[in-house]
Design a protein around this nucleic acid. Structure first.
Lengths: 362, 362
DNA sequence: CTGAAAGCGCTAACAA
DNA sequence: TTGTTAGCGCTTTCAG
């Protein structure tokens, strides 16, 4: 009527103006305006903070819903000093091992309302730096670093001063860093003591490349558990090679070309080696588990289940490791100081390849 | 001297105060102050925008570096309407198939400075909704939706009004949606025509469960390519079952218990089935590729390479699919309107299992 | 060429 | 109980 700009609200719930509703989300001001309260009041209502009359609060909430209002996290984060995001940085691309970790981690963090940025640097330090740069720019609240095979890596750029970091399935030398790893040695012990308990006397070990820390630890576990069981660990019974089925076959050929002292059990460094070993044993007429019992490592289902007979295998419980990493990161974010290298327990998944059931009653 | 607050700068480059430098990153104001320019000028210098004297710019840049200044993306995003983030939402957990896609996608997007939020909803609609809610709150610029096995899924909540969405390795009914899928039928044709060209006359098909769209398409490709090659597609030569090695073995037993019309080639729905088939064929004394040639699907390296002989297999080029999804999403974010269901080409990776080389010269 | 100031959307301390 | 206001850190007109 009187030259007022057309942007005052009609009192009834009708859409205030005919602007396109699509682009740009509703803002807190929209809600406040439509509810006829101040913007501060609207904020209080939506955050259930401060003292407020029940009706105002209800009104605001209702309007907010009808407007499909969704608070802008970016703005919130700018204010509070928390972005509610963390980055996960993988040296290697995410593969069979990192994935269960990441999945569990995501789950754990999501429960606390934290979203995760996925960054893959594939062994490229420059790329890693750029990723880090990006994450810091986005003001992530923390960082999880993973790698291929639980190998030692260089520490994350000191750039990340004060930023909580958890190394999961990877580790660095710094004693102030928190590193979470599977207990490879313990896993090996589980396998060996299981076999020994089943009455196996000569347990050979076919494993991967020695430059992997995991390989060395598993070998150590093999030795330790053997001697605890009163069995000998002969160097000639420990063969190190590649992580492949082909190597499993070759190693079996090597072991069984002897005329005496043949193994009655094989502990393999991973499930692929184990499967290769099974195939090779069958090729030379040995039956499993009667003649030779087999235990693998990784408990990679597609492998373990497809092997004939299905493979008993050590599980690194990577899901648990991921969840633990998430929990630890949350702790650190909330100010606690965590450090040290922690090894999480493995477990043994028993299938048919070592004749547990056949021997169990004996 | 005269009651001035102590926060004016000493003119030389010395650290202005002795506040702890650790917590909280440097802000633009810190830089401006230390460089002795206005905050607006500092901004211009850092963004190489506006007209500015070379020396001022150099000065600001230098100070910024010495202060280890890193712009706060959150604040930037708040201002520009772009968060430079996208979400990737997986119905299924990220597995063997989604992973190559996600990896390539991440790579493509990272090249454009976009970070990606990884969300895993594992078939839980409520969880999916919460994830979506979170992503919208974080004002992602776009969304990629993946699923287990290129299966049809329900559209993302209409909530995401106007938000660019690409369905990768998954699809919905809406013709306005952009869906990227591998060309399963074309992949099957590649396999069959390869075998036919090698002189195989009776090519059977052992595949997965028919409720998978991919299974139906691959079967269609098998039929079409056979007839194009002048060969018959007999219903009894197409066996549908599980995606496992065990099924591959069973199917071979089924096919080869016939007294005549035995297949001289097998096209398998995935590499696991193919591997099972190979094992079973060897068990009944058929040699590969002489008696029976085999082609698998997925080109899953660990499987294909470990099979004896190594498996020729159809590759869905999931990396390319992921990169394409990324490119398409970028297009949509920059305003282009893309829609429709696009099928990306597969390719054939030749190994020894169909005797390509032996027959090639014939 | 540079500085001042408004504002992105939200929160929190302080007034009213 | 509610409104006002001053930022969070940055960009961008618009004056000087």
């Amino acid at each position: 009527m009187n030259g007022l700009p057309p942007d005052d609200l009609s009192p009834e719930g009708a859409p205030p103006r005919d602007v396109a509703p699509a682009p740009g989300a509703r803002t807190l001001r929209d809600v406040a305006q439509a509810a006829g309260v101040s913007i501060g009041t609207a904020s209080k209502a939506l955050n259930a903070s401060g003292r407020l009359s029940a009706e105002t609060r209800a009104k605001v909430l209702e309007v907010a819903k009808s407007l499909d209002y969704r608070p802008n996290d970016l703005a919130q984060s700018l204010h509070r000093a928390r972005s509610m995001t963390v980055g996960i940085l993988s040296t290697d691309s995410f593969g069979r091992f990192t994935f269960p970790i990441v999945e569990a981690l995501e789950r754990r963090l999501f429960d606390d309302g934290i979203a995760i940025f996925m960054c893959n640097a594939t062994d490229d330090p420059a790329r890693e730096r750029r990723h880090l740069e990006q994450l810091l720019g986005k003001r992530v609240d923390g960082l999880v670093v993973t790698a291929r095979r639980a190998d030692k890596r260089a520490p994350i750029e000191p750039v990340a001063r004060g930023l909580p970091v958890v190394y999961a399935f990877s580790y660095i030398d710094d004693p102030d860093a928190l590193c979470l790893l599977p207990d490879d040695e313990g896993g090996a012990r589980l396998a060996i003591s299981h076999l020994a308990r089943l009455g196996r006397k000569r347990i050979a070990h076919i494993t991967g490349p020695r430059h992997f820390e995991a390989v060395r630890l598993r070998e150590a576990g093999w030795r330790a558990a053997l001697s605890e069981a009163g069995l000998a660990a002969r160097d000639s019974d420990c063969l190190s090679g590649r992580w492949s089925e082909a190597w499993g076959r070759e190693a079996v050929a090597e072991l069984f070309k002897r005329s005496r002292d043949l193994p009655d059990a094989l502990f393999c460094g991973n499930d692929q080696i184990a499967r290769g070993a099974v195939d090779a044993l069958k090729d030379i007429g040995r039956s499993i588990p009667e003649d030779v019992a087999i235990v693998g490592f990784d408990n990679w289902n597609v492998m373990a289940d497809a092997t004939r007979p299905p493979l008993t295998s050590v599980d690194m419980n990577l899901g648990a490791l991921g969840a633990e990493a998430g929990a630890a990161l949350l702790d650190m974010i909330s100010g606690r100081r965590l450090a040290g290298l922690r090894r999480l327990p493995c477990s043994l998944v028993v299938r048919a390849s070592c004749g547990a059931h056949a021997h169990a009653g004996a």
